[in-house]
């Protein structure tokens, strides 16, 4: 079903198209991530097709009912399949939960039957033929480095980025992973394409504790502070993330965390597509860079000064 730049008979490449599942955060606290992702994909000539999606249920649904945690994202799979498209989400939680639902529907006969029964009650079906991709995979693999390099207008030379994967883009391991779960490299690859330099960052795969933000704030603060501190100590100008929950932790909560640890840190945290958008020459406002809580003004200024 994938049409990853399939070469047609006349030699022209077919336009990449995906069903787009932004997820709840991208409609609210992570609006800038949605703005930047749509802008960047548009600039790269990749079509994101909106569907009438629902929440994936995140950790909450699966922690109250195993089947509910699979049936909720399965509805989105059914909608995408109806359009004949693979599905993508910028949110690692949405992506991972959707992938899990697809995997269970395909490879576990008993759970698969239950998922189909639940979908059937809503007049939907999922045959199991589509791929679930995070946008990092689409950028690094489907669009690919050549096509991106061609479109970079303002390389971000001189900037040092801490590449922060967090958990769920590469974990748990998939049957057919696009990157290594223990030693990935695609985020660094994309950062390099922008002209910025990915620094060596020990904490790049360490959990930010975002799922504990509401249930256990003390634990959450400890975990996020460790990551911010490591970014600063490693000499980063900013952190790059591709997760709205990590961003909430590292950016929105940074002031409160710094205060709790009597630290004066001010570490900008950019979404991957905000960074890429800057390199593609897209206006900062269109990328929502004025919506990040830790100011990105100085960063943008240093680019203009180049």
């Amino acid at each position: 079903m994938t049409d990853e730049g399939d070469v047609q008979e006349d030699g022209a490449t077919q336009r990449l198209r995906y069903a787009y599942f932004p997820g709840c955060s991208l409609e609210a606290s992570a609006r800038e991530y949605d703005m930047a992702t749509r802008e960047v994909f548009n600039a790269l000539d990749v079509e994101l097709v909106d569907i009438d999606w629902n929440c994936c249920g995140a950790t909450a649904a699966s922690s109250t009912d195993h089947l509910l945690g699979l049936a909720l994202p399965a509805r989105n799979l059914a909608l995408a399949e109806k359009e004949g498209l693979d599905i993508t989400s910028p949110c690692p939680e949405c992506y991972m939960k959707t992938w899990m639902a697809g995997d269970a529907a395909r490879s576990s006969p008993d759970t698969g039957r239950k998922i189909r029964e639940a979908l059937g009650a809503a007049g939907l079906e999922y045959k199991g033929g589509i791929a679930v991709k995070h946008i990092l995979e689409i950028l690094a693999r489907d669009v690919g480095p050549e096509a991106i390099r061609e479109k970079v207008k303002t390389p971000l030379h001189g900037l040092k980025a801490a590449p922060y994967y967090g958990c769920l883009i590469v974990r748990p391991p998939r049957d057919d992973p696009f990157d290594s779960p223990e030693d990935p490299g695609t985020l660094e690859e994309v950062i390099r394409l922008t002209g910025a330099r990915p620094i060596r960052f020990q904490s790049r795969l360490r959990c930010c504790g975002g799922t504990q933000l509401l249930p256990n704030e003390e634990l959450f603060m400890k975990m996020t502070y460790a990551i911010l501190k490591d970014a600063r100590d490693s000499g980063a100008d900013f952190v790059v993330t591709a997760c709205p929950l990590c961003h909430m932790a590292l950016d929105a909560k940074q002031k409160a965390i710094a205060a709790a640890y009597q630290d004066d840190m001010e570490m900008p945290v950019l979404y991957l597509t905000q960074l890429l958008g800057l390199a593609l020459g897209i206006e900062p406002r269109k990328l929502g860079l004025d919506k990040n809580l830790v100011s990105t003004k100085n960063l943008i200024k240093s680019l203009k000064a180049q």
Binding site: E27, R31, D52, N54, L72, E117, A121, A122, K291
Partner: peptide, 23 residues
């Protein structure tokens, strides 16, 4: 502009509810 005062909804909400009820 990152906090809306009204909830966003799935248009075909009944579909989601049917799935939850079935589960």
């Amino acid at each position: 502009g990152k906090l809306s005062l009204l909830p966003h909804r799935t248009k075909d909400l009944e579909q989601v509810r049917k799935i939850v009820r079935k589960v």
